[in-house]
Write a protein that binds this DNA or RNA. Structure first.
Lengths: 223, 223, 223, 223
DNA sequence: AATGAATGAGCGTTCATTCAT
DNA sequence: GATGAATGAACGCTCATTCAT
């Protein structure tokens, strides 16, 4: 009995996951409004009506995607950041795991990027919540860095958060629109270097080995 | 005669502009796919069929928006950049005019932000062309800066472009989603400062007056 | 099990047939371009959308009509012709069955007559195929008659085919436009007589009982 | 004054004729319902609105076509028939002039053929009137032939009319659908022969030179 | 008389959602 | 629970006709 229940639960969960993944797959390729429930059902190998046993509506699929799937990813960000000690290492871990996870699941990345940039967002609440999680992590890192002395104090933290998130987003976006074939993670190191040091030249510093230099060749596809 | 011709031309042009603006207004509020031709027609004060005298299709409205309206804006970017001499000033001018123009026409900004982040872009060609214009301007500035000695040489320029554009995009996005009521242009100066100096603390530099400090109060709405 | 399957198949087939018949009914009354999908749906007792579960488009209804319904009819022509031995009897059978079938399904007759006489024919391929079937039957009959000695040898067969088909067509057309209330089949015998003997008087033959004389009263409505 | 009036009248008439011809040209190519007033206006070299100064509606163009243009043609039929004396010669003249006129104006022929075969005919009254004219001519010829002794008496005249008209129609139809490039008029002689003698073989007659034999090679395109 | 911009009713088609089986 | 046929509201687009100029 226990076992059967378990199987059934897994089966049920399986079908939920299968539909969700199928949906994200389709949404990533065609966009939410260009995708039909029929296409999602076919991709998931279920009947059209079955989808409504697991999701309230087409919109609900997107909402579940944000509250379920991407939430897991963002929780991993927190874990990864906590593994490091210094603010700079924490920032490095955040950027790296972000690029890693989005590279690992390109469909998720695509849907995430597109949906977060809509004006009317179906999953507004979920997106806001996740956005806050991410912004809070960056805030903490910046503030820790300022306390440690590794980060400038004359910063407007609200802007720094957009400065960092926006850059990472755009790097992912470029990767997505390029076809997603080059190595996204190799961008992490030089990106962190840009965040910390900026593009400006400092006389006293120009003898330092360029950070992330080694990555340039690997990432040469971007231009 | 000349006058009548002028009036007629203006009338014709007027209606084209009126429809385009009405459409962008509606698209900005509801998104392209949620907007109907009927809504646009009502907003423009014309009949549904009239729209098809000026635009080939619903998609064409978006394409014309990108070829017409945003092209003008991007040409202003080039002009403004050319007014400055040093790379740093040019970057400052670019960011400032970008934020200025997008703040001035919030509907344009919204549609631009949303449409450029779709996976299937209706105005793909126009967007690619404009994107290239912008990326080229940034490339030139970075290269000039390197020649002048004001910009680091150990940079992967392809990444620097995303680093800059992404940050600006995200600052605009945040402003759009906040309701667009605070002063976006005040972000220009501190943003350029971040690009140039990064967030990292440099011992030798920590006695400098914080760049953009004065903007913080004005922009306090972001967090 | 077998029974359920049968019922289900019939139900599905039923709806397809119902829509097809409703469509032909409407098309016959109003013409293809004057008829709307809504009218067809109402006539068939289904929703507008249901039609698109069985037909790809409005045009496809006409195409299916020609591939399905009229094909069956034309196959009956072949069967009926094969039942006779002499060329003259075969021609008689062809004309008789043609008039019989078209009289039996006046809507089919109407749509067939109208659509085959368009300049741009939606079901061009199907019509050409069927036209060829009919022409081939007539050709065979004429050639058999020539071999038997019952048909003149100094004939241009290409023209004879039009001569026969055109007459039959026109007789059907007249019947259709008259309201289709008199007996069409009674035209078969006198028509065959005209094909064989023509209208010209032959001295040696004028003592023969007039063929088809008996039909005149029955068909007196035509003039 | 007189002269100017005349010019003006001609101009007016010119424009009416130009529009009518343009319309028939377009209708012949695309069919009535597939043609737009705009296309007709462009073809005629006038503005869309101008058409409504000369015709009450789109339907009215078709009605004028039948009452104006084709009426002239059918009056020529009468004239040509009157030139002959014997019934057989009259029939020959009728068929010949019919094929000649329709070959001379292929657009007229196409529109005539298509519109007369519709179920709901826009120009119903005009078509009926013309049809009656034609049928009456054939009736007269047949009756004259019977009086002369050249035509069988045991004929149902109502049917004979369809027999003749239908054949001619179908020969024209075949020519139209073949692209109208072979010589249609060459069909007149063999067609009359078929009407008079039929396809049946008469022992006593088989030494006569085949009528219309000479035309066969010229008309070899039909099959 | 001539224009052609403007109109808006009307159509074919799609697709999220429901529900009988 | 699972199905997929059926629904019908909604949309983009067309085009005959009008009318101010």
């Amino acid at each position: 009995m226990e076992w059967r229940y378990c199987i059934k639960t897994n089966n049920k969960n399986d079908k939920y996951q299968r539909i969700l993944e199928a949906a994200i797959n389709i949404f990533a390729k065609q966009g939410f409004y260009q995708s039909t429930i029929s296409q999602v059902a076919t991709e998931a190998g279920v009947a059209d009506g079955t989808i409504y046993l697991y999701f309230k509506s087409k919109d609900d699929i997107l909402i579940q995607f944000f509250s379920d799937k991407t939430k897991q990813v963002f929780e991993r960000f927190r874990e990864e950041v906590d593994k490091a000690n210094s603010a700079v290492d924490k920032l490095g871990n955040l950027i790296r795991i972000h690029l890693e996870e989005f590279q690992r699941d390109r469909n998720m990345a695509m849907v995430y990027q597109v949906e977060t940039h809509q004006n009317y967002r179906i999953a507004e609440n979920q997106i806001k919540e996740m956005s806050k999680m991410y912004l809070d992590i960056v805030s903490e890192i910046v503030e820790q860095g300022q306390a440690e002395g590794s980060v400038r104090r004359d910063l407007y933290v609200g802007l720094v958060k957009r400065f960092i998130i926006g850059s990472v987003d755009e790097v992912i976006n470029t990767w997505l629109h390029s076809g997603g074939e080059y190595d996204l993670v190799s961008m992490a190191e030089p990106l962190v270097d840009l965040f910390i040091r900026g593009v400006g030249r400092v006389e006293e510093r120009n003898n330092i080995t360029p950070a992330g230099e080694s990555s340039y060749s690997r990432a040469a596809e971007i231009n």
